[in-house]
């Protein structure tokens, strides 16, 4: 991550705004404010930091939080990859990439390994990310406890006191009623032994890769005006009982119809028989080209 160095002269930046859109859409003051919130988020892993979420050229709920995070941290030396459902060509990914690239002039890539910033909705790339990379996840609902409590004052208290027993009760009830824990995506995780977070919704498949990762993950929730972070080398534990193993998505005998993969997250591309395909399209393509 390279932080923009365009903050030398306030008057310069003010003057620049009169001539047209500034670098990375947002004005420098706004970007600085978002970066301050991000620093706080990194310092207190899993804590939802309020920030003055700006209205973006995309609607609330369409990645406005992830976009603000990306624009706040992007610099001229960055290379960006943007995916939606694992797909670089997803219609919303295309749109967000167009905005980031056109407002910054930085290069784009579909190769996860080449990107310094990867903005994503609902997936973590299959390639293992490294310490020089930042993953930005778009978050529709940042509050992991909303299913059990609606009052935001009470929610704030529960997080402050690490009072998560009702969350455990809901997992217990789920297991008793259904025989399994039915929470699918956005599985609640305890970060650094302290805060429970909503994991965007990424599928369960991706959860283990947040644990003790090499890379920094930043979560941006634009509509709810919160950012949070999982720094590298942080313990991330999906909430589950000691004797009820956490399960990831598996389909017996399924393989990608394109690359034959059985060890990536597969999506059911048409709902018909044997229509499984890798959700991470760039990874799938690379695998095919390697033969």
């Amino acid at each position: 991550m390279t932080v923009t160095d365009n903050t030398t002269n306030r008057l310069d930046s003010l003057g620049a705004s009169g001539d047209g859109p500034s670098f990375a859409i947002l004005d420098e003051e706004s970007k600085r404010e978002i970066r301050r919130a991000l620093l706080q988020a990194v310092a207190v892993p899993g804590y939802q930091v309020p920030f003055g979420s700006r209205e973006m050229p995309v609607a609330r709920g369409w990645g406005s939080g992830g976009l603000q995070v990306t624009l706040a941290i992007v610099g001229p030396d960055d290379t960006v990859k943007i995916i939606d459902q694992g797909d670089d060509e997803g219609v919303n990914a295309v749109n967000l990439r167009r905005l980031v690239v056109s407002s910054t002039g930085i290069p784009e890539t579909t190769e996860a390994r080449e990107a310094s910033i990867i903005q994503s909705r609902h997936r973590i790339p299959e390639d293992e990310l490294t310490a020089t990379q930042t993953l930005v996840l778009q978050v529709p609902v940042p509050e992991p406890l909303r299913g059990i409590e609606r009052d935001v004052r009470e929610l704030a208290r529960m997080h402050a006191e690490a009072d998560y027993s009702r969350m455990w009760v809901s997992l217990y009830e789920d297991k008793v009623r259904n025989g399994v824990i039915t929470q699918s995506t956005g599985y609640p995780c305890l970060v650094n032994g302290r805060y429970v977070v909503a994991t965007t919704p990424i599928p369960r498949w991706d959860i283990p890769r947040l644990h003790m990762s090499q890379f920094l993950t930043l979560f941006g929730a634009g509509r709810e005006k919160r950012v949070y972070a999982i720094p590298p080398h942080t313990i991330v534990e999906p909430l589950t009982f000691d004797d009820v193993p956490f399960e990831v998505e598996r389909i017996e005998g399924a393989a990608c119809r394109l690359c034959g993969s059985t060890d990536s997250f597969l999506v059911d591309s048409s709902g018909e028989v044997d229509s499984w395909a890798c959700s991470d399209t760039a990874w799938c393509r690379a695998r095919r080209s390697q033969g």
Binding site: A59, R60, G61, W62, S64, D84, Q85, G86, D87, G90, V91, N92, R121, H122, R123, P140, V180, T182, Q183, S184, T185, G186, P201, I202, P203, R204, W205, R223, E249, R250, I251, F265, L266, V267, D268, S269, S279
Partner: peptide, 21 residues
């Protein structure tokens, strides 16, 4: 309005995970 309309975005990864459950 934004959150309502985001339901039009692709949701096949999350839906796949729900089917799994």
């Amino acid at each position: 309005a934004g959150f309502l309309e985001h339901l039009k975005l692709p949701h096949y990864v999350t839906f796949r995970s729900m089917v799994d459950r």
